[in-house]
Simulated assay, not measured.
Amino acid sequence: MKLDNAVAVVTGGASGLGLATVEAFLAKGANVAVFDMNEAAGQAVADAHPGRVIFQKVNVADADSATAGIAATMAAFGAIHVAVNCAGVGTASKILDRDSKALPLEAFNKTIQVNLVGTFNICRLAAEEMAKNAPDADGQRGVLINTASVAAFDGQTGQCAYSASKGGVVGMTLPMARDLSRYGIRVNTIAPGIFDTPMMKGVSEEYRQPLIAMVQNPKRFGDPAEYGQLCVTMVENNYLNAETIRLDGGIRMAAK
């Protein structure tokens, strides 16, 4: 599927992996709807690309908020061809704390709601619009790209909620691709390792270096542009479907 003149929705598109994806898609000629909770950052992206980017404040875990965002995208651009889910929360809490008290259920549920339910929410709404598109020569109408994490496979201490949410994203990749195959909509997932996002740039070298030590090659954090590059490939390669790809420099996370 070609990105030139396509319309993409990118959740979490105001920063980090999402922003890198927005920039990669714009470079390929796409128009983009940025969904994010950070109004200032999201509007700044839209202001930098007038006519080609719109911003919508969207809570991906809320049905009405996501529906409004999709409707605004359709009103602005008339179609949706690609949706990339980068919005998420990265909590770390053990099931029992140092005083042997159980993790509050609300904390676990919030992570599941944003990372897993939020991803499904955007997929279902975007797919409904994609199904209306005229197919290209290869029968393609749309592409969904979801973000899991290496924590889906080797979650660390304190990552029960996070790993469960990202494992759910991996687990629904194949059945979602099967569900949508009749419409010419492909579904893939990226499982990133450690990336130099704004959140990670703020941590100390004392914290960064043990993480880098677990990376095989190259010995560094991932560049968000490398995530955006893979998203472009997932859109443009029509035979890439129902796959989860680890983008992690060969990292295998230790227990802690």
Rank of each mutant, 00 (worst) to 15 (best):
residue 218 P to M: 08
residue 255 A to K: 12
residue 253 M to K: 12
residue 208 R to E: 10
residue 131 A to V: 12
residue 28 K to Q: 12
residue 205 E to P: 03
residue 205 E to R: 02
residue 243 E to I: 14
residue 167 G to W: 05
residue 171 G to T: 00
residue 40 A to R: 08
residue 110 K to T: 12
residue 146 N to G: 04
residue 184 G to V: 01
residue 56 Q to I: 11
residue 4 D to L: 14
residue 239 Y to I: 06
residue 255 A to G: 13
residue 122 I to H: 08
residue 161 A to L: 04
residue 149 S to R: 02
residue 146 N to S: 05
residue 97 D to Q: 10
residue 119 T to S: 13
residue 15 S to I: 00
residue 215 V to G: 07
residue 97 D to S: 09
residue 165 S to D: 09
residue 89 V to H: 00
residue 173 T to K: 03
residue 237 N to T: 06
residue 233 T to N: 10
residue 75 A to G: 13
residue 83 A to F: 02
residue 232 V to H: 04
residue 128 E to M: 13
residue 139 G to D: 10
residue 78 G to F: 08
residue 226 E to W: 11
residue 11 T to P: 08
residue 192 P to R: 00
residue 18 G to Y: 02
residue 217 N to T: 14
residue 121 N to M: 15
residue 225 A to G: 06
residue 14 A to S: 07
residue 130 M to I: 06
residue 67 T to L: 12
residue 122 I to E: 09
residue 23 E to C: 09
residue 213 A to L: 09
residue 39 E to C: 05
residue 161 A to W: 03
residue 133 N to Y: 11
residue 185 I to D: 03
residue 196 D to P: 04
residue 72 A to K: 07
residue 168 G to F: 03
residue 17 L to F: 05
residue 187 V to S: 04
residue 123 C to S: 11
residue 119 T to P: 11
residue 15 S to F: 04
residue 64 D to A: 13
residue 217 N to E: 15
residue 73 T to A: 11
residue 128 E to P: 09
residue 112 I to P: 07
residue 66 A to S: 14
residue 226 E to A: 08
residue 23 E to T: 15
residue 87 A to I: 11
residue 59 N to P: 11
residue 246 R to Q: 08
residue 70 I to K: 01
residue 57 K to W: 09
residue 45 V to I: 12
residue 212 I to T: 02
residue 212 I to S: 01
residue 118 G to A: 15
residue 47 D to V: 02
residue 189 T to W: 01
residue 26 L to N: 07
residue 140 Q to F: 11
residue 240 L to E: 03
residue 59 N to W: 12
residue 70 I to T: 05
residue 27 A to P: 01
residue 19 L to G: 04
residue 27 A to E: 07
residue 139 G to E: 07
residue 43 Q to R: 00
residue 46 A to G: 06
residue 32 V to N: 00
residue 253 M to H: 09
residue 250 G to Y: 05
residue 1 M to T: 07
residue 222 G to F: 06
residue 148 A to R: 00
residue 247 L to G: 04
residue 136 D to L: 05
residue 190 I to E: 00
residue 13 G to I: 05
residue 85 N to L: 09
residue 184 G to K: 01
residue 10 V to S: 05
residue 218 P to I: 07
